[in-house]
C-alpha cells in the first residue's frame, strides 16, 4: 500500500503540490491524469524519493520513503522518469541488466540473465539488444527504459508518461503489459498518462490532478464525465461509450 499524507511541495515561489493525501492499496493499475503543470510528475518523484520531502509523509509498503535506505526501497519500488538522460556507449542489454542492480550489486547470475532476456523479448528488443542506446530512436530507447524498470522486478512500479515516443502498436502493447503485471503478478502500477483514453480502458482507478491538488478520484466511468473533465482540463468535451468503456472525444 502507498500512503501519502498531507504532502505539500514548494519550489521557489511556486506551490507545486498542496496538501495532497492519497492511499493506493496494493495491486491494480492507477492512472494519474491532468493538465501540464498539475503536479503529477512531482508527486511521482516524491513517492520515489527522487526529491526530498518538504512536508507530510509518504510510505510504500510501510517503508517511509524519506528515512528508508535507498537500496532497500529499490527492491520494492521502481521508477521510470520522463525523458531520462541516457549514458553514452551503453548497450540495450547492459541497460536492461542494470534493473537487476538493487538485488545483485552488479553480480549477474543465471536467474538474472533469464529475467533480462525475458524483458528484452517482452518489449521487442531482442534484435536490438547489442545496439548502443545512442544509436536508437526515441521510441526504442523508451522501450529499453521500460524494460529496465520491469526487470527490477519490484512490487510497485511508477511510470511517468511511459507512452512518450511510442508508436500506436507499442503504446497499446505497453498498456497491456502493465495490465498483465497488475493482474498476473499482483504488482501495483501507477502511471502518469496524457492519453486519457488509454486510462479509460486499462486503469482500475483514475486520479485527476489540477494545480497541485487532487480534483477527482475513482473508477474510469466515474471520473470520465463531461463535467469532471471540464473542471480538470478547462474545456468541454463529449464522452461516448464504446465496448463498455468511456471514450473521450478530447480532440474535437
Amino acid at each position: 500500500m502507498i500512503e501519502i499524507k498531507n504532502v505539500s511541495l514548494r519550489l521557489g515561489d511556486t506551490q507545486i503540490l498542496e496538501d495532497v493525501s492519497l492511499t493506493m492499496p496494493k495491486g491494480g493499475l492507477t492512472a494519474l491524469v491532468g493538465p501540464n503543470g498539475a503536479g503529477k510528475s512531482s508527486l511521482l518523484s516524491l513517492i520515489a524519493r527522487l526529491q526530498p520531502l518538504q512536508s507530510g509523509s509518504i510510505s510504500v509498503d510501510g517503508l517511509a520513503v524519506d528515512t528508508t535506505p535507498s537500496r532497500r526501497l529499490a527492491k520494492t519500488l521502481a521508477i521510470l522518469r520522463q525523458d531520462p538522460a541516457v549514458a553514452s556507449r551503453l548497450k540495450v542489454r547492459e541497460l536492461v541488466g542494470f534493473g537487476r542492480f538493487p538485488h545483485q550489486r552488479g553480480r549477474i547470475d543465471d536467474n538474472d540473465l533469464r529475467l533480462i532476456e525475458a524483458a528484452l523479448q517482452q518489449f521487442g528488443l531482442t534484435d536490438l539488444a547489442d545496439r548502443f542506446l545512442d544509436h536508437l530512436s526515441g521510441g526504442q530507447r523508451q522501450r529499453a527504459m521500460v524494460a529496465m524498470a520491469f526487470c527490477q522486478g519490484t512490487d510497485y512500479m511508477l511510470l511517468d508518461e511511459p507512452l512518450n515516443n511510442l508508436d500506436m502498436m507499442f503504446a497499446r502493447q505497453l498498456m497491456r503489459d502493465l495490465r498483465a503485471a497488475a493482474d498476473k503478478d499482483r504488482r501495483t502500477v501507477i502511471v502518469v498518462l496524457h492519453d486519457i483514453n488509454h486510462a479509460a480502458v486499462y486503469a482500475d482507478r483514475i486520479v485527476a490532478m489540477k494545480d497541485g491538488r487532487i480534483v477527482a478520484d475513482g473508477p474510469p466511468a466515474e471520473v470520465l464525465q463531461p463535467d469532471v473533465l471540464a473542471k480538470v482540463f478547462g474545456y468541454e468535451m463529449d464522452v461516448i461509450e464504446v465496448g463498455g468503456a468511456p471514450l473521450v472525444l478530447h480532440h474535437r
Binding site: A48, L50, S70, R71, K75, I79, R81, A87
Partner: peptide
C-alpha cells in the same frame, strides 16, 4: 553514470 534520478531509483544513495 545513469544520472541522479535513475541511480536513486536503482538504490544508490546519490
Amino acid at each position: 553514470a545513469l544520472g541522479a534520478d535513475s541511480a536513486t531509483g536503482l538504490g544508490v544513495d546519490w
